[in-house]
Design a binder for these strands. Sequence first.
DNA 1: TACTACATCTCGCAT
DNA 2: ATGCGAGGTGTAGTA
Lengths: 252, 252
Amino acid sequence: MRSHVEPGFEESKNVLNHALRHNELITVYCECEVKYEGRAYSKLERGDRIVIIKPDKTLLVHKPTGRNPVNWIKEGASIRIDAQDHLFITAEAINPREQMIIKISKVMLLNSCQLSDEEEVSIMGSEADMARMLYEKPYLISNDFRPVSLEEQTKYGFIDVMGHDGKGTLIIVECKRVTAGLNAVQQLRRYVEKIMEAKGVSEVIGYIAAPGMTKNSKQMLKDWGYKFIRVEPPMRNIIDKSRQKKLKDYLK
Amino acid sequence: MRSHVEPGFEESKNVLNHALRHNELITVYCECEVKYEGRAYSKLERGDRIVIIKPDKTLLVHKPTGRNPVNWIKEGASIRIDAQDHLFITAEAINPREQMIIKISKVMLLNSCQLSDEEEVSIMGSEADMARMLYEKPYLISNDFRPVSLEEQTKYGFIDVMGHDGKGTLIIVECKRVTAGLNAVQQLRRYVEKIMEAKGVSEVIGYIAAPGMTKNSKQMLKDWGYKFIRVEPPMRNIIDKSRQKKLKDYLK
DNA sequence: TACTACATCTCGCAT
DNA sequence: ATGCGAGGTGTAGTA
């Protein structure tokens, strides 16, 4: 159930429609221009790109550079093919209403194939993993930190780790897996203020736990009386050069 | 300068190396598993995906669903191909140190082609466009708003629109092209406080200009004495259904 | 659905 | 290089 052609527009249209009906993953190497209207407006003049249509009707247009698609419509697009003096791929979405038109002047390669993928990626080293680590190793924050809750969605915000010290004073920890900036400090401030208000207490201790902080945010933290604890996210930089040689062993 | 093969691992390796040397854009439909170590750690068990290697040595692994790659290494990766009992694509980056290994158990399609694209996308309807609109149509904020500066990077932050009212009181406007949330209000607060401190004034008027605000952020805004002005970003929702029929005219 | 915050965010811009 | 914020952000999780 796969196809490779290098066709005229009418033939391309037929191949595309067949692949669309069969929910194949389609890639088109082509010369095209692209217009988008919806959440904004964009125009991309003629050049070589690849167009990807996924089985879930995600549509991507990729330039030959960069990680991100230059244009896209999210899953569930309704896609129409027209062959005239050019080959047109039109994608539409509702909520929000969006429209993309790809005007193809040359098809270099057209491929499609049925793909089956049941697996989901598992990731370690997220902020949640970091919060969990602090919950399990509270001494990383301070010797008398007693964590009570984890990743708690309160009315006042999503608090990474919460607990108290030996004297019962509330402690709120905001984790960042990368260098913390002004935003992180403001987030912490919001949580602390809201909790003080809600619990009717005058003192809450606030921590930023992160591998680092920017200069300004450190100043802000100091101004507002919060504290910074340097913590590396778990599983960071575990690359082991020695293992690279044993490629066969590497992937179990 | 294009190729299509459906080869064994050794042949695939040769084709890939040739394409890599010639900076072609490569797509591989394959059954594979993927391991990533670097800024985090991830593992993706065996399934069908497409692997894309761009001329700038961006590496993407896409599942059959979703807009984003499930695994990736940004431009400039050093890529190595190994053919053994499996076909391996190894990508490495430095700063930060990252490594990705794709272990391919089946190659369904392998394509490469030289692409030439000089054009960059142009977008209208950004936040900057919105700020510009408010600068040019200050009455959208209030009848006596006198804008003075636009998109100004101050020491205290990046202030979208700044000016004063008829009585000379400073006005700061924070624009959001989508529904404003808690973050937007805190941003505004930070700017207002910093400006008050810097100018030594006790009153600065703060505005959020956005198509909408979330409930909590509206409350926060009220609590802190700021104001909300409903403004749609320019070029929003200009899709004209009637034009769709005239496809040929649509793209100039 | 609305709201909130993370992300291997990416990307551009300014210092 | 670092800092900062936008993004057509996307995505997951929760009320």
